[in-house]
Simulated assay, not measured.
Amino acid sequence: MLDTTPLTAAVDRFADRLRAAPQSRLQRGAAAEALAAARELAVRAQRIERPGREPYLVPDAGMFVVGDQLTVAGRDLAAALVTAPSAELDEAVRFVEEAAARAFA
């Protein structure tokens, strides 16, 4: 199991808010913002883990599972960043926090 990092903590906070959000909030853009964030995190992880290969796209599996998709993508990136410079981790944390702020603005 991956230890908690600043990235996994930020992802977990965002995902928990999504899971607790009413359907109306998800429909007003929170789910779309989270899906875009999950896709970006997944692409970043795949570029580290499989350089030179075309990244797979996280599918749109619906607004009620996007929190789980975000969690998986965020943890994948955290695992990929274990040996990366701390600046990359800091940037990923900022990205997640900004996406969460946009989703719940």
Rank of each mutant, 00 (worst) to 15 (best):
M1D: 14
D3I: 11
T5F: 05
T5P: 02
T8M: 03
A10I: 11
A10G: 12
V11C: 10
D12F: 13
R13K: 14
A15G: 07
A15C: 04
D16M: 09
R17N: 00
L18H: 04
A20R: 04
P22D: 05
Q23N: 05
Q23R: 05
R25H: 09
R25G: 04
R25E: 08
L26I: 08
G29N: 09
G29F: 12
A30I: 08
A31T: 09
A31E: 01
E33K: 02
E33R: 12
A34E: 12
L35G: 09
A36W: 13
A38M: 03
A38R: 02
R39F: 10
E40D: 15
L41T: 04
A42G: 11
A42W: 11
V43A: 12
R44F: 07
A45C: 07
Q46C: 00
R50Y: 14
R50I: 05
P59G: 09
D60C: 12
A61K: 13
G67V: 13
G67I: 08
D68C: 10
D68I: 11
Q69E: 15
V72M: 03
A73D: 07
A73Y: 03
A73L: 01
A73C: 04
G74C: 09
R75D: 01
D76P: 00
L77R: 07
L77A: 04
A80W: 02
A80P: 01
L81T: 05
S86C: 09
A87Y: 03
E88P: 05
E88H: 08
L89N: 07
L89M: 15
D90I: 07
D90M: 11
D90A: 15
A92F: 05
R94N: 12
F95S: 00
V96N: 11
E97Y: 09
A99N: 09
A100H: 07
R102H: 12
A103N: 00
A103C: 10
F104V: 02
